[in-house]
Design a binder for these strands. Structure first.
Lengths: 334, 334
DNA sequence: AGCAGCGCTGAGAGCGCTCTCACCTCACCC
DNA sequence: GGGTGAGGTGAGAGCGCTCTCAGCGCTGCT
């Protein structure tokens, strides 16, 4: 298939030096005499030599690349139009600075799950980052036990000792719901996220807590963070309690769906029903009306998980958890 | 860092066989006696053995994984809320069936570009897929010359011999613009995509062709496929020709931005201005009004580039180009 | 009885690289 | 003039695996 590629041996021969010296030049060692260095460089250029990474990592025990595992189908990953890209961008920034290759792996199916596991344990990557973990996915824990450095985005459900980085879900949610209470709303419902994800669970917990504090009854529907599910959940809520005057929606995408249902049902936002989302994705600004929502520092999450992993790789001790702040952004929908 | 992992040697010793036999069992050879096979399996399980892929691919010259390179910043990649995920899903399906690992690489910066090049040439992957190529990016051609099997999504600009898969951009565009002409629109503008991408160029060409055929003047603004650019381009068009009664927008995301500008300018859609998009992303259905657009078989693109690459890897001869059909989807915006 | 042939296993080479260690050359100094 | 050490280079081991090839014990045929 692929043309045979030149080896270091050939480069060395052409430059009239030993393999060891050629290797030194390729790897930027300074202890090589200038003329020899030049000769090797020329040989490399002429042959179009590129080191075989498999051979290199076999001896160095490093792969100089790290995996970002998104345990989702590609659909979910990308339908959320700013969360993943933001995280990825943050991760990229940090890894690029450390000259590590970022490898993205989407594991939706069980087969892909297994393959990713083997891939990571087999030493193709030096460490693994997880984003958006579903349920008590055993993979992070499993990899950690196998000796692979791991950092998660989002507190893992279940009892896990995997270090993670999360945002202040509870704080953000409570700020949002209190905002509705303070505005005089009396029947505040919520569209919760999937209850097998920690973001789904925490945002519902925050909502319930404020409701209890202000002696209001909880009105709950559950979605899965997609637009369609937001639409359906909103219909459900209107059926359950036609009198509701506010909704806290656990993601902006679901809020977008909810807005559509409200429009179809003839409710004006925010006059009849106030709506608050979560995430502050780009779309939030383009909703009609623009969405009041909870902003999370998405890129910072990416940068932070990458930084923690790099520290781990460097042999440092790292915090078991890092919590980043959230912030309520008030626009027109509430 | 990582705990020392067991080697095949240790598995063999524990099972009381040679390394060769252990290897045979691990790789599923049938020519091993059942009791020995069992013993090896047990040893593998007990030690938690996972083959070192670097060592394996060093000798087999295969990596059993293929790269999908997205030469974009993560932002652009994901803001398009259905194109990339669709392609990725299609690719995943095919590769999973072939038991190959998919490695996604986002190369936005020049540094990442170089790293990706080395990564691919260094044999970390058996082949490379490209999606959404910018300008005359030399990377595909370069990799091909280096002996790496390559297939592109989208006809590469410039003179390239890299095999590709594309949709019928011209046909789709012409259908869309003719639809506007047939509806009696007399001042049809366009918001074109970036002119360093073939999708941007072709869709503008198609528009111009129909305009010329129907003796209408072209009214052109150029965006970069993002929502913001669509918004800005629409403002530009309204300033250039306040009388325009239709717009063909080269992507749904830009169309979403354009709709907002039109609403702000007080134009009713489709009464005052008809709008047609391109892509048929999910959002199109959620626009207000729902967007008439050109659907392209996104997942099929992914499946097709993957299939072509796998055929290439298998040593087959493949077509230099495969063109997939597009289809006009009429909703309410035009 | 002898030998071909089959089913199975083990020895060993070698994939392309890095890295240790020994060595070789020169100043430079006492 | 000999010793010392710095600066540079090469030989060779070995990373963990696959795969060829030889060899083992049998069966079954001549």
């Amino acid at each position: 298939m692929a043309a045979r590629r030149p080896t270091l041996e050939e480069v060395a021969r052409r430059a009239g030096v030993s393999r060891a010296t050629a290797s030194r030049v390729v790897n930027g060692s300074t202890t090589v005499a200038a003329p020899i260095r030049e000769a090797v460089r020329r040989a490399v250029a002429e042959l179009g030599y590129v080191p075989n990474l498999a051979a290199r990592s076999l001896v160095t025990q490093r792969a100089d690349s790290i995996a970002l595992i998104l345990p989702e189908t590609a659909n979910r990953v990308f339908s959320d139009d700013q969360f993943f890209p933001g995280v990825i961008r943050g991760v990229s920034q940090r890894l690029e600075a450390a000259d590590k290759q970022l490898v993205l792996m989407l594991v939706g199916s069980p087969a892909a799950h297994d393959r990713a596991e083997r891939y990571a344990i087999a030493g193709h990557v030096d460490g693994v980052l997880f984003a958006s973990i579903h349920g008590a996915d055993p993979l992070p824990e499993l990899l950690m036990r196998a000796g692979v450095p791991v950092v998660c985005n989002g507190r893992p459900l279940g009892s896990s000792r995997v270090p993670y980085v999360d945002v202040d879900q509870l704080g953000g949610t409570e700020a949002a719901v209190r905002h509705l209470v303070a505005a005089g709303r009396r029947r505040i419902a919520t569209i919760a996220g999937p209850q097998d994800m920690v973001a789904g669970v925490d945002r519902l917990t925050g909502y319930r807590r404020v409701m209890a504090d202000s002696d209001q009854r909880s009105i709950v529907a559950v979605g899965d963070f997609t637009r369609e599910s937001g639409e359906a959940a909103m219909r459900q809520l209107l059926a359950d309690d036609p009198q509701l005057d506010a909704v806290f929606v656990a993601s902006d995408l679901m809020a977008h769906g909810a807005l559509r249902t409200l429009r179809e049902a003839g409710r004006r936002v925010p006059d009849d029903v106030a709506v608050v989302g979560f995430d502050d994705i780009q779309l939030a600004r383009y909703c009609d009306p623009p969405l009041t929502t909870v902003r999370q520092p998405i890129e910072e999450i990416g940068r932070t998980i990458a930084r923690q992993l790099l520290r781990l790789l460097a042999g440092e001790q790292i915090e078991p958890a890092v919590i980043l702040p959230t912030e309520l952004v008030v626009r027109e929908s509430a």
